[in-house]
Structure formats: C-alpha cells, structure tokens
C-alpha cells in the first residue's frame, strides 16, 4: 500500500469511505432492503399520483355522489372501474389512497424531520451547556409535554386555519420535546465520558464537540424515537382528522380516509376504511424496517 500515491487513492475501487461502508452494511440485511424497496415504490406512487391515478379525487367536478359507496370492482357513472370501491362522496378509493399517501408522507416525514432537528439540537445544547440554558430548555419541554396534543393542535389550527402545512407545524410543536428529552437523557450520560473530556481538553470548538462527538453517540436512541415518531406523526394526523382537526376534508390524507370510513365499519362497508388502513400500515412498516436496521448500522456500540 505504501507505494499507492495520494492521487490515485480516491479512485481506488475498494477504497472504504464511511458512506460506502454504511451502504454495504445496510445492504447486508434483506429485510432492510425489502423495506427500502417498498418505501421507494410508495414514494414513487405518491409522486406520480397525478399521472397514474384514475381520477383526481380533489376535484369536486370529477366526483359524483351518485357513485357513493360503490363496492370494490364496481363501475361508476363516469365509466371508471373502482377497483377499491368509492367513499361516501363517490371518490375513487384507489385515487384517494394515492393522493392521500402524498399528504401523509409529507405530514409524517416533514414534521418528524423538523421536530427532530429542532428537538435534538435543543436537547444536545441543554445537556452540554447545563446551567440556565438547560433549565430554560427543560422547562419548555415540560410545558410542551404537558400540553395535550389535541388542545395544542386545536389552538394552532384555529390560529392558522386548516391546511397541510399547518398540521405539520402543529405536529412539530407537539413533538420536538420528545426528541429534546431523549437526546438530553443520553447526552447527559455521554457527556461524562472520557472522550468528551478529551475533546474538551483539546479545546475543540463547542459546535464540533456537539455535532461530531456528542451527537453520533446519542443517535441510537434518537433513531428509535425518530422511527416511532414518523409513524406516530402519521397516526396522530389520523387521530386529529378523526376529531375533525386535520387536513381539509376535500383533500383527505390516509388518516382522514380511515377516519371517514370508520363510521361505516359497523355497517359492513369495510373498504372505505380498510384499504387506506392497509396503505398506512405498509408505509409505516416499511419505514420501521429501515429504521430498525439503520439503528443497528449507525450504533457505534454495536460495531465490532
């Protein structure tokens, strides 16, 4: 190896960058790859919904209540075969699910990502800085965690009006505290470790210690919470819709479709709620299969 020049090093075929190592480790699990593939299919379906869906379920001019509650496989007045049936408004469920995926993914991933960024930064800061900063942040966390989600969402949505972005904002406000609390918890332990003390002795900048040293070691619990929170955000959005506070009824998310169909469960019109439920489930399971494996890959303590 000693005669390999620096110039050639980057193009050397078996050179191991951390990213490649990460990719190859991730690829070693069939389940994780399966989860990734399913998730990619879902994302593609969601992105292409306007082109591949049989109907635009948001256009009131295209749906007809005379087609309401058709069973799966029936043909509606407009000549469309409704493979998954229609809801009470005559909305094609398949199209509704495709469009609903877009909204649920935006809401779930968007809110989890933003909440994680905000929460983790504040949690790290609290643990590392300690003192007054810690106090203020943790009291904020207390305040947030003690505020029932539904009330917070009701107030936020009352201020801002209904809408997908507003639901995301509400979920971020509701969820950041979980990340903050989790990161602070593990960071408190890690902070006392020798490697941090060593880094401090080397007089490394605070930002560097925080994000290069402390954060990676707090990642495993953060990823556990994160994967759970994506799922939770999607489910929470469904619950908000159930309580009439979620996305607009003319642009249903998966959760709203389920909530809508919920009322028809007792009367045997299962498809209005069942198929969106399956879509929700598959989405969340695929995210979690990836998340589970990611956690193991990213966990420095599980490395041999």
């Amino acid at each position: 190896m000693s005669d390999v020049t620096l110039d050639k090093a980057p193009v050397a075929p078996r050179e191991e960058t951390p990213f490649r190592r990460f990719v190859s480790e991730f690829m070693s699990s069939k389940i994780a790859v399966g989860g990734l593939l399913v998730f990619l299919v879902i994302v593609v379906v969601a992105l292409l919904a306007p082109w591949i869906a049989p109907q635009n379920p948001y256009d009131l001019g295209q749906i007809d209540i005379m087609d309401g509650r058709l069973e799966p496989g029936e043909v509606g007045a407009s000549g469309i075969t409704h493979w998954l049936g229609t809801d009470d408004q005559g909305r094609d469920m398949l199209s509704g699910i495709m469009y609903g995926l877009r909204i649920s993914l935006t809401v779930g991933a968007g809110s989890a990502l933003i909440a994680c960024l905000v929460g983790a930064s504040l949690g790290l800061l609290a643990a590392y800085a300690g003192g007054r900063t810690d106090t203020v942040i943790m009291r904020l966390v207390d305040l947030q965690l003690s505020f029932p989600t539904i009330l917070a969402a009701l107030m936020i949505l009352a201020f801002l009006g209904k809408g997908i972005m507003n639901v995301v904002i509400a979920l971020v406000i509701v969820e950041w505290a979980y990340y903050a609390r989790t990161v602070r918890g593990s960071a408190l332990v890690e902070r006392r470790r020798e490697y941090i003390e060593a880094a401090q002795c080397l007089a490394l900048p605070t930002r560097r210690i925080l994000f290069r040293h402390l954060l990676p070691n707090c990642l495993p619990p953060l990823i556990v919470v994160g994967t759970i929170q994506v799922a939770r955000a999607i489910a929470l959005e469904a619950t908000l819709s159930f309580l009439g506070l979620g996305v607009p009824i003319t642009e249903p998310s998966l959760g709203l479709l389920i909530a809508n169909g919920y009322e028809y469960m007792l009367s045997g019109k299962y498809w209005i709620s069942f198929y969106p439920g399956v879509a929700l489930l598959v989405t969340i399971v695929s995210i979690n299969l990836m998340g589970d494996h990611l956690r193991d890959v990213l966990n420095p303590r599980l490395k041999k």
């Binding site: 939770r232 489910a235 389920i258 919920y262 929700l280 969340i284 299969l289």
Partner: peptide, 22 residues
C-alpha cells in the same frame, strides 16, 4: 414480535378501539 410491535403504533387508536368493541 418486532413485526407485531410495528402494528402496535401504526394503527390509529380510535380504529383499534372500535375493532376491539366489535
């Protein structure tokens, strides 16, 4: 067990509640 645990937090509470009652 792990697959089951995913179900546990994917299903909306209100929906599971009604299923339990049914």
């Amino acid at each position: 067990i792990m697959a089951g645990s995913i179900l546990g937090f994917s299903l909306p509470t209100f929906w599971v509640g009604l299923m339990l009652i049914m």
